[in-house]
């Protein structure tokens, strides 16, 4: 069937408008559920970094978070890159801080929290809230075995984290994902230097 230019142009305009409208409507419909999921994910991530998430249900995450986590400045820093510094607070005193970090890895940004005890001598946990690394390779930084290595990891002012066997800890990189693994440590060391210890780490 031969169709003229005006029909073709009109058809494209109408079909585009219709589809975009349908998509916008779908997005509006899904928005509440998506936002709830996003908040929940963020809260669960913070609890995980602070070592407070023990397979909590979604409702427990909300009550645990509201009961124990409050924004609290660390070294006078209230936020890092627009994300507030949070702390696990008990009896008005911080027990541990969730320090936000962001950096660039192989494919894109990585963001997350590093949990650090109030005494700054140990990490309480590591969590990623955003990463776009290759699934199955760099994406494995988001797997439990990798993140759990950071729980209870000894920290000291001026000491950078390194892979391999160190005097008082052992840290493994992801096999086949050297770039991503190195980027994670680079980002964490930057967070340690700029936010936690406010001094150079080597």
């Amino acid at each position: 069937m031969k169709k003229g230019y005006s029909y073709t142009i009109l058809f494209m305009v109408v079909i585009t408008a219709l589809l975009v409208f349908a998509l916008a409507a779908a997005y509006e419909g899904f928005k509440p559920a998506i936002n709830t999921n996003k908040n929940l994910q963020e809260q669960r991530a913070v609890l995980y970094a602070l070592g407070l998430d023990n397979n909590l249900s979604n409702d427990q995450v909300v009550s645990e978070y509201e009961g124990k986590v409050k924004p609290m400045p660390l070294n006078g820093l209230e936020e890092v890159g627009g994300v507030p510094v949070l702390a696990h607070v008990e009896g008005g005193q911080p027990v541990a801080y969730a320090v936000p970090f962001e950096g660039s890895a192989l494919w894109g940004q990585i963001r997350g929290y590093l949990g650090v005890t109030a005494a700054k001598d140990q990490a309480t946990g590591l969590v990623f809230t955003y990463q776009n690394e290759t699934p199955g390779l760099g994406g494995r930084i988001d797997e439990a075995w990798y993140k759990e290595q950071f729980r209870g990891l000894p920290l000291a002012s001026g000491a950078a984290l390194k892979y391999g066997a160190q005097p008082d800890y052992q840290l493994d990189a992801v096999t086949g994902a050297t770039q991503t693994s190195q980027a994670v440590l680079r980002t964490l060391n930057k967070a340690l230097a700029e936010t936690v210890f406010t001094g150079e780490v080597e």
Partner: peptide
């Protein structure tokens, strides 16, 4: 039968993109 032949690939891309975004939203929500 109503897609003009010379822009059919544009329309295909458009329709496929809409469904992909829809699947993405669906996964994000549920």
């Amino acid at each position: 039968n109503i897609i003009p032949h010379r822009v059919r690939m544009l329309v295909q891309t458009l329709v496929i993109a809409v469904y992909v975004i829809f699947v993405d939203l669906l996964l994000q929500a549920y």
